[in-house]
């Protein structure tokens, strides 16, 4: 929480999507809290984390939304596609079904997210090599097809987790002008605590 009150130059909203139980929450908690537990619980609806990082000399606040993977929740999660500047699409390398769903997730992004949104494809659970069902090459090929970057990560062993988030943040940052006035959200957010003292929003 302390980091949230520090000033920052830019805010980027990231969205994590992918089939149920591929490890979205694990990745997020590894990245935001540097913790891992094999007993992570189901995400119902939407969850939310903040991480402030230094990126190429700028202070960037990442607002990361973690969504429920199951189909039924798309009614809720879909409305959060809009306004996201980066989307982290996760599959599980030990479960081919989740890899096969990547195309339908990409279609979802096309339908519901902003046209210019940055994307990254992630094959999680790379530590579980013996159960692998999707090869690195396949993952890379699919990522190339969509023209997005690809990582194989392990939330458990902390492999590539920071890299993938930094990459998508950097891509989004390059696209978004840092001038807060061009950013509808930044406009309100960048003024940070100062705006809070205005009676308008807190009265």
């Amino acid at each position: 929480m302390t980091s949230s009150s520090r000033p920052f130059d830019l805010q980027i909203k990231l969205l994590m999507i992918g089939d149920s139980a591929v490890g979205k929450t694990s990745l997020l908690l590894r990245y935001a809290n540097d913790t891992f537990s094999s007993t992570f619980i189901t995400t119902i609806g939407i969850d939310f984390k903040i991480k402030t990082i230094d990126l190429d000399g700028k202070r960037v606040k990442l607002q990361i939304w973690d969504t429920a993977g199951q189909e039924q929740f798309r009614t809720i999660t879909r409305s959060y596609f809009r306004g996201a500047q980066g989307i982290v699409l996760v599959y599980d390398i030990t479960d081919r079904g989740t890899f096969n769903s990547v195309r339908s997730w990409m279609a979802q992004i096309n339908d519901h997210a902003d046209a210019q949104v940055n994307r990254v494809l992630i094959g999680n659970k790379a530590d579980f090599e013996t159960a692998r069902q999707v090869s690195t090459e396949e993952g890379q090929r699919l990522a190339d097809e969509y023209g997005v970057k690809f990582f194989e990560t392990s939330a458990k062993n902390d492999v590539n987790v920071t890299e993938c988030f930094t990459t998508i943040a950097r891509e989004a940052k390059a696209r978004i002008p840092t001038d807060p006035n061009n950013n509808r959200q930044g406009q309100r957010l960048n003024s940070g605590r100062a705006s809070g003292s205005k009676p308008g929003c807190c009265k």
Binding site: M1, S4, S5, Q11, D47, F48, K49, I50, K61, Q63, Q185, R188, L189, G192, R193, S195, G196, S197, C201, C202
Partner: peptide, 19 residues
């Protein structure tokens, strides 16, 4: 009302209840 001056602060504060 007292401490959450930005959207993400509000979200973070309330979402603590579940996470």
């Amino acid at each position: 009302l007292r401490r959450c001056h930005a959207p993400h602060e509000t979200l973070l504060f309330i979402s603590q209840l579940t996470t």
